[in-house]
Each structure stands twice: as structure tokens, then as C-alpha cells.
Simulated assay, not measured.
Amino acid sequence: MTTSCSDDNYDPQPAPNTDAETSYVIAAQDDGTSYLITAPSLDEGTATVRGTGTEVLGGSYWVFKNQNYVFSLVYNKGGAGTGASYYLNAAGKPTERYLYEFNRITSYGTWGDKVVTVSTGDSKTTDAEGNIAQALLFNYLDENTGGQTEGAIDAENFLGNGEKVTFAGLEEANGKLYTSVVPMGMSRYGIGQWPDMVTDTELVAKADGGSASSSYTAGTIPSTQYPDRAWVAIYSGSSFAEKPVIVSTDKIGFACGRHRSQYYQTIWAAD
């Protein structure tokens, strides 16, 4: 059974076990099956899934959040994201806490006591012609309870240039959160709202095209008009609803790597 949960319907479970003798939890794979195993040390001895590993949901990404939970995040191409959280039970064995279904994942990171996934998708806002505005869609997985909540903010004209955006990576440093902001061209909604932001009408697609995550429809600008500029948003509070500081440079293109619909982090905290 797959469930979606929030902190509001949290049901008590045994407290996570942080016994030093089983304090190392390792994600491993054998014959295409994913496991979590424990080990008392990473410096000596051996660890094996044979007879000791706990079979788990195979994760595209694993996020180990402090001492309480490990989260498996699964990229399902164009489909909805799935995931799971695990904790150590009283016997020191990795145990499933929750299974999740949430908005598709194109990037992820941590912020405070939350594991965060992000993608860009349809909002509930439309214009008079029925064109749908795009939003940044967030999932928050709580490190203390394993619970899940969701949130969204406008992705349209985020940078003031009329383009919709997505985020690539989340990096915490110096009490702030940094994320690369990636412009992705103009939607039909965006062109209708900010027609003066179209730099060249020849960029507007005359017909549908592309495929999979690169598909587009007529009447949109399929890719950014600003390929030679990078933006980073800096949040000082604790919510994406707050207005961030935006810094930019024309020394590089947008600060992320990409493969299909996945946006990979290329900004990191320095010493």
C-alpha cells in the first residue's frame, strides 16, 4: 500500500535507535534489489546484504538526514515522484516508516529539519484564455517524524524577465539557503502576461515539437532567451514564500547540470 502523509496524521512509532554499535547505515544493491544494512564501523570488518540487509524501495537518491531517518527518493521520469523513509528500530534494524507519493522530482536538497524536493509544474492559476501558469512545487519530508507536507510558489517571471524557472540544488551555508535558478523560456501564460519580455518574436514556436521532457507547444518560447547568464537565489528565512536576494553573473551559463528532466546541483558550500 502506498500512502501520502503529513505531520497532522503522524502516528507514534518507536524512537529512532542511535546505538553507537549500529550507528552506520549503508544503502547497497545486489542483483538489482536495494537494501539498507548496518555496520559498527566503516574502518574495519565487513558488511553484507546476505541474510542481514533490509530490502527497501530502490532510490534514485538517498538522503541521510542527521541521526533520525534516511530517505529514499525515486525519479520516475515524467511521472509522479515516490519515496520512503526508514529508521533504526529498537533492535537496530532498518525499518520502513512511510511510503510517499508526491510531485515529480527534478532536484532536491535539505533545509533546516526538512528534506526538500522541487520541480516545476502546473499551478491553479489560469488566464482568460485558459493558459496555465507554472509553479515551483515543493515536497517537505520531516527529519523528526518522517511526515510529508507540500508547498508551491510562482515560477512565472521569477527573475523579472518573463520566463518560468526551476531550481537546481539546495545548499545551506552561513545560516542561508542557496539555490541555482534556471530560466526555461516563456509559457503561453507568460507571453500573455508579459509580451514586452519577448526579445524576438521569431523565438515563439509556430508548432508543437520536441519529445519527452524537451517537448513544447506552439505559442511558447521553448528555451531560455538568456543562455549566457546564471542566477542564484539566497533565502535568509525558513520559507520559499519569502522574497530571496537574487545574484547573477554573465561569466557563465545557468549553474546546473542537466540530463533529461533532472537538474543537478553545481553550487556547493566552501570552507
Rank of each mutant, 00 (worst) to 15 (best):
G253N: 03
V56R: 07
Y100H: 12
T117A: 10
V182E: 02
G185R: 02
G51Q: 03
Y178W: 02
V198M: 03
M1G: 08
V70W: 11
G112S: 12
T38W: 03
L203P: 01
A269N: 08
A135V: 01
G237D: 14
G209H: 07
P183T: 03
S107C: 14
T48R: 01
S119T: 15
F240I: 04
A241I: 03
T224D: 04
F167Y: 10
F158I: 06
I191H: 06
T117W: 09
N161E: 00
W111T: 15
Y61L: 08
P222L: 01
Q193K: 14
R260A: 07
F158D: 10
L141E: 01
Y226Q: 11
Y226F: 14
L57K: 08
K243I: 04
S187Q: 11
D200P: 08
V181S: 09
G92W: 00
D208R: 14
S223W: 08
F254W: 04
F71K: 05
M186K: 11
R97I: 01
G151R: 05
N174P: 01
I191Y: 05
E101H: 07
V181M: 05
G190T: 03
Y235D: 09
D30C: 09
Y86N: 12
S261D: 15
L57A: 11
N89F: 01
G112T: 13
T149G: 06
N89H: 04
S23I: 08
M197F: 06
Q67Y: 15
T106G: 07
V182G: 04
V63P: 04
V247I: 14
